[in-house]
Amino acid sequence: MSKKKKITTSTGVEVRHKPLGLRIWNNRGYYLMFLPVFVFILVMYYWPMLGIRYAFYDYKPVGAPTFVGLKHFYSMFKTDAFWSAFRNTLELSIMKLLITTFTAVIVSIFLNEMGNLFAKKTLQTIIYLPHFMSWAVVASIFSLFLSPSSTGLVNGLLRDWGILAPDAKGIYFLASTAWWRPIFYLINIWKETGWGTIIFLATLAGINPELYEAADIDGATRMQKMRFVTLPALANTIITVLILNLAKVMNMFESVFVLYNNAVYSVSDVISTYIYRQTFAIALPNYGYSTAVGLFKSLVGCVLVLVCNWASKKTRGRGIV
């Protein structure tokens, strides 16, 4: 028979807990306040999870679901398009994360170094704006700019500058497997860098000015101050941002969905767009299959969160969950 574990304080005094029911009764006001939140979480977050079971069913818009065990998982693992989407998800997300974080850090440092407050604020506002544009609008704008036809702005400039011959075919940036990813990263940098600088600028604002004064007294140059004071101060924030965002790498959808097309599936199709097409782009979808792919995506995402939590504990001394 197992003994109940005793809880003691640091001075060795045994802590005697009152029974749970009594504790709940004593704090019933708080529990009552928590109740709606608890119900909300159950209904809105956990109840929909019951749908996970359909990963093990043939489930179409019509007819009753039929249990098929692991059929969809076998089918998924045998499908090249799934593995291509899986690889693309990791590659695109991680590269995007690294690139946008790096550019946000650089831009933050430049903004921090700007002496003219008006110019700094104006620039900040300008670079924040693209974040508030919807991906659909961004895709329309860049599709026009990058059009391969004679009306495309970028191809026109390339011809004007002599990079493309006047009678040469325009580069189909968004339909080229070589160009699609660089363009995708570029658009992401344009759209998200400004927003990403906020957290770094906040950190930079919190650096003790005495450190810079001490560096000045030691005769440090601007670059040396940036290297030996600013960057080390930012390091913890950079790691935090990277870790927090790493947990979300499987969630990429909208930015890809509005920019990709069938010519570049091999380099652009991600798990979420693959699920979308399997669910909605065919006349009679099998939700069982797309649920199975979605479940796999969630499991990978869950593993990534745990890895990030572990990494966070190692680097920051505390976890993120």
Partner: peptide
Amino acid sequence: TNESGTIYDAKLA
């Protein structure tokens, strides 16, 4: 019915 999406993708590719 189940695979028409996959077939269409392969055809387009």
